[in-house]
């Protein structure tokens, strides 16, 4: 089996794993109840099993008739957006909302080509000022602009 096909199989396999995990979790930790009075675990058990079966069918389908290959992920964009959102989370807690917005925009601009650093910082500054005006001044969201929460 070639590598592309193996990658392709990972998606359906993940579904089988997730389905089994939900089924096992309901079986082991939740009350299944009776047919008449179904417990909290009944539906997740059934759905988990169905998901696992559907995942298995999708796996077989993929092996029998290979469709398009899984495309290469855009790692640069993936990392940049991940870092941007993480920056928002971390900085809002430590430094306040506006530094967080500034940092998020700056992280996002790293994937946008040919923009000078002055342009990046002014865009970040502009969005931060906009957020302050609309959300803090206008809508009065109870979020700290600067300083740890």
């Amino acid at each position: 089996m070639d590598r592309a096909r193996l990658t392709d199989a990972l998606g359906p396999l993940a579904l089988v794993a997730i389905g089994m995990a939900f089924a096992a979790g309901s079986w082991l930790t939740l009350d299944l109840g009776t047919l008449r009075r179904l417990g909290p675990g009944a539906l997740p058990l059934g759905l988990g099993l169905i998901l696992a079966i559907l995942g298995a069918v999708a796996l077989v389908q993929g092996l029998l008739q290979p469709a398009e290959r899984v495309p290469r992920p855009d790692l640069h964009a993936l990392v940049a957006v991940g870092v941007a959102i993480a920056t928002f989370s971390v900085l809002t807690e430590r430094l306040g909302l506006l530094p967080a917005v500034f940092g998020t925009v700056l992280a996002m601009t790293t994937v946008i080509g040919d923009l000078p650093w002055l342009g990046r910082t002014s865009l970040a500054l502009g969005v931060a000022i906009g957020v302050w005006a609309v959300f803090l001044l206008g809508l009065r969201l109870p979020i700290r602009a600067f300083g740890a929460g």
Partner: peptide, 30 residues
């Protein structure tokens, strides 16, 4: 066009965070 995406990212984070003022939700959105 590309200038819009940074603002969109900020709006997503801020929108999620503003609901419960809970940063866990922002991580979960990621």
């Amino acid at each position: 066009h590309a200038m819009l995406y940074p603002s969109v990212a900020v709006l997503i984070c801020l929108g999620v965070y503003s609901l419960r003022l809970n940063l866990f939700d922002v991580w979960l959105t990621l």
